[in-house]
Design a binder for these strands. Structure first.
Length: 332
DNA sequence: TAGATTTGACCTTT
DNA sequence: AAAGGTCAAATCTA
């Protein structure tokens, strides 16, 4: 991006767009419960904040912009033209990343899911299209079971910020509460076993990611004998049975057996998913069960806003003319 | 040996 | 200050 655009002008543009995104988010919240649009706007806002922070770091001269917050308590590093050492640059970016992570805790879209594991059989091989890496475990006050913290394996290589927390329910030991943050930007679906139509544009999968991942789960374990049930969060809006069927075609071209019950056909928030698809050993230890559910839980992931969806101008309506490609295409 | 997990320490938020 | 969340060194495993 160096030299492509005056950084001060860019910062002004980004700040303006970020304010606009914030106002739009407020409008969306006021309009009603439109989860996808809200989450999308949150992501855009987060991107803008990232870009602003990055631009501030890279800005070679103090500008006439309002003073920015220092990145750390350490003495400010001079950036008035003298070359900074790689070491201090690394420290600066590390500090920046840490602060950005804290910001993202608040700005990343967040949603909850609940998974129940029951039945007998073998748990071997339970995987999904996403790979998670555990980075922490913590006992939670008032909870009998520890909470596991997972992030996307491709966080470092692809910058994917998706994370999830898995906690076993106190009330029912076969129920796991899973909280997701952020969305996968790493295109992990490409690593999944080859499936007919799996290389379709991401747009076709983005509108009902929940169902899509459920389909993934059943694809990998077509012969297992236990059951995983999913309780979709109430604040999520899944469009229709047709969408489920679309994903069915995406992942199961050639199959004529409808494996899933559409949420539209269910009269409660209990959403039976892929019955008789996933096996769990009845004597599995807690840690084993947690791992199993961690993998399974991601198959009930939430609506996904991938890049194509994010760029879908129709989702913004006439209120928002922000075009990320204009902002980031040539300069980032 | 590389990648994943564990776990105590540290940081941020409330 | 307490609790939640993340980091990173040590350890494990394939």
């Amino acid at each position: 991006m160096e030299g492509a655009l005056d950084l001060s002008s860019l910062l002004r543009l980004l700040s303006q767009a970020e304010r606009q995104a914030g106002q739009l988010m407020a409008q969306v919240h006021a309009d009603g419960n439109q989860y996808r649009r809200t989450a999308l706007l949150q992501q855009i806002r987060s991107c803008l904040e990232d870009a602003i922070a990055t631009a501030k770091i890279m800005e070679p001269e103090p500008s006439n912009l309002p003073p920015q917050l220092p990145l750390s308590d350490s003495p400010p590093i001079s950036n008035s033209g003298s070359p900074r050492s790689e070491c201090s640059e690394r420290v600066l970016f590390k500090e920046h990343e840490r602060r950005e992570m804290c910001k993202k805790r608040k700005t990343l879209p967040k949603w909850a899911s609940r998974v129940c594991v029951a039945g007998g059989g073998l748990a071997e091989g339970l995987e999904d299209g996403y790979s998670w890496r555990k980075y922490g475990q913590k006992g939670i006050l008032g909870a009998r079971h520890p909470r596991g913290y997972y992030r996307c394996t491709h966080r470092n290589t692809a910058g994917c910020l998706a994370t999830k927390q898995v906690q076993r329910s106190d009330d029912d030991s076969c129920v796991f509460d899973i909280t997701y943050r952020g969305d996968h930007t790493c295109q992990q679906k490409l690593q999944a076993p080859p499936t007919p139509g799996a290389d379709e544009p991401a747009t076709s999968q983005s509108h009902d990611h929940h169902q899509a991942q459920v389909l993934n789960s059943s694809f990998f374990f077509p012969s297992s004998s236990a059951q995983i049930t999913s309780f979709p969060p109430q604040n999520l809006v899944f469009s229709s049975t047709a969408a489920v069927e679309d994903h069915h075609r995406n992942y199961y071209t050639g199959s004529s057996t409808p494996l899933f019950i559409s949420p539209a056909t269910s009269d409660s928030n209990y959403f039976p998913v892929a019955p008789s698809q996933v096996a769990v050993h009845p004597n599995a230890s807690e840690s084993e069960l947690t791992e199993i559910v961690s993998a399974a839980a991601s198959t009930t992931n939430s609506p996904r806003m991938d890049a194509n969806f994010m760029l879908d101008q129709a989702e913004f309506g006439p209120l928002f003319n922000f075009d990320p490609s204009n902002f980031f295409g040539s300069s980032f």
